[in-house]
């Protein structure tokens, strides 16, 4: 139960500290609760989210790693696969059973061999390449398809906001 989840989270934390993937930092918000993490994700280069540092919260269930954690961006986000409240909708975060969008193959879904690192890496790739089929944010998906320029503008504004840089336009 919580004991084994705790040991595994500790191991992951250790690995992410000693061997962090580029541009990604993750760890418990507070040492008193190892089941709530904060992650910082750098927007991938060559995309509209380039350079931004996006904070997100990860909430782990008691039976982790049997069940996936929940992930939610705590900054403003505008992306086809992120709900307006910041929740992330990617297949790796869905338990093998549930399939809210009805299209994912179970191969892409959660399994205990996945890890925080893999989740965050796939979020990075999601930022780079939205999957406009899963309509977590329909407006964003539509804009992504039809008006890329506008989308890039919004993304850039968000990037600046996360960095605390405000440029007059």
């Amino acid at each position: 139960m919580a004991g084994s989840a705790l040991r595994r989270l500790m191991a992951e934390y250790k690995q992410l500290t000693l061997n962090p993937p580029e541009g990604i930092i993750a760890g418990p918000i507070n040492e008193e609760n190892f089941f709530e993490w904060e992650a910082l994700i750098t927007g991938p280069e060559g995309t509209c989210f380039e350079g931004g540092v996006f904070p997100a919260k990860l909430i782990f269930p008691c039976d982790y790693p049997l069940s996936p954690p929940k992930m939610q961006f705590t900054c403003e986000m505008f992306h086809p696969n992120i709900y307006s409240d910041g929740r992330v909708c990617i297949s790796i975060l869905h338990a093998p059973g549930d399939d809210p969008m009805g299209y994912e193959s179970s191969a892409e879904r959660w399994s205990p061999v996945q890890s925080v690192e893999k989740i965050l890496l796939s979020v990075v790739s999601m930022l780079a390449e939205p999957n406009d089929e899963s309509g977590a944010n329909v407006d964003a998906a539509k804009m992504w398809r039809e008006n890329r320029e506008e989308f890039n503008k919004i993304a850039d504004r968000i990037v600046r906001k996360t960095l605390g840089i405000y440029i007059r336009e």
Binding site: I92, S111, L121
Partner: peptide
Amino acid sequence: TLRESETISTTSSNVPLSILQSNVEQP
């Protein structure tokens, strides 16, 4: 999509694939 996937693969490595194969690839 192809073009994008190419640019991405140079920046953030092909993460979705690496996850599918479930071995962590170095970027």
